[in-house]
Design a protein around this nucleic acid. Structure first.
Lengths: 204, 204
DNA sequence: GCAATTTTTGACCGTTTGGACAAACGTTAA
DNA sequence: TTAACGTTTGTCCAAACGGTCAAAAATTGC
């Protein structure tokens, strides 16, 4: 027993777990943790509820697995910001990457937003630990760049917050953005427009 | 019967409905619509579930009432932006008001964020109608200001989005902001710091 | 005071929920 | 063939859910 949680897994187990996580991402992102039901996820994954529970021991377990994976991908762009690189290029690349993530992985962004909105019940230690460390480190780099006159002077922590807020906005508040822009301006080009605007805002 | 929904209400009805809405705001903001239960709201309001349902005919009815009220207050700051005023002063005031709302009414902000994240099932018409109209009108004003060289040139719609995103971030992602800033910098002054930073970002 | 009305409550109902379980099914290898 | 193992499902359960209802309690108007 307990094979699915055991790191040693069969091919079928690996495939089915992937299938479930993909379905769960869709459902959790749309309804939040409590709003989502195991039946919904099971149906989206094309299997019965007991079958799903054979691969994950609980709804919570699916959610935690999803969040864990998400975190890695989430922090990656900031990790890549290089102290040795050209400041303007580094910040521009970071903004680009974040906007591309909002465009290509909106479900991940919404899942994360849901978790934080609810008070980060499952991620607070990570936020206070790994995330804070990373941000502090990068904030120091940004502060140096600003002191060297390579970037406009500002509080580097709030500078990072502002990049997060503005880029993720296009994923989390997508419905509102599209409603306001209308069918014309709200089309495919809105992420490109946003990227250009944000580069100007943060680097102009 | 049907007294509570009838506009003609007794003193008790008005008071109790207020009590319920206050309690519901707390619970909905923390758990979202589906995550919140009538029992939770009733307990927070200090009354029994059937008693609560005497004043509001359903959970949905409470939520809709809350959202309706919220919208008015939500749009007010943007409405106040005056085409005749000084551009820099007007934008600065708008940012100030929005940050103050994030500080003083974080539950309202989170409730709204929840609704939009879920795809705005109950507010989409309002977003596409009243909100879009208002934003289009103010975007025009901002564009004029930019053309006159009073503000840095940029896409006015995305300019407004960026103000929304950054200010509401301090309410919606408060846990994360505090976790990253730590007990020291994350104290009472963080909204003041944010306000100063945002003024520099959008007007500097 | 008393009757009409408003407010409150306990008990209840049908449905949905997360999850358990044993039995059945499929696959593999001796 | 058959025993062992991995996979799938139908059935079931207790708790939680949104909501109803009749009756009790409190309030109000005369």
């Amino acid at each position: 027993m307990d094979k699915p949680t055991n790191p040693r897994r069969t091919r079928i187990q690996r495939e089915k777990r992937e299938l479930i996580l993909e379905a769960a991402l869709e459902v959790f992102a749309q309804h939040g943790f409590r709003g989502a039901t195991i039946d919904q996820i099971a149906e989206a994954a094309g299997m019965s509820k007991p079958n799903l529970l054979y691969y994950f021991k609980s709804k919570e377990a699916i959610f935690v697995t999803l969040i864990d994976r998400l975190m890695e991908a989430w922090l990656a762009p900031l990790r890549e910001m290089d102290a040795e690189g050209d400041p303007v290029t580094e910040v521009r690349s970071y903004i680009r990457r974040k906007i591309e993530m909002a465009r290509d992985f909106p479900r991940e962004s919404r899942l994360f937003a849901n978790e934080i909105l609810q008070g980060a019940p499952r991620t607070l230690p990570l936020l206070e630990g790994e995330l804070k460390e990373l941000v502090d480190e990068k904030a120091k780099i940004i502060r140096d760049w600003m002191r060297q006159g390579k970037l406009r002077q500002a509080d580097p922590h709030h500078f990072i917050f502002a990049i997060w807020a503005t880029t993720q906005h296009y994923a989390d508040f997508d419905v509102q953005v599209r409603a306001v822009l209308g069918p014309d301006k709200g089309g495919e080009g809105r992420f490109e427009d946003a990227a250009r605007f944000l580069e100007g805002l943060f680097l102009g």
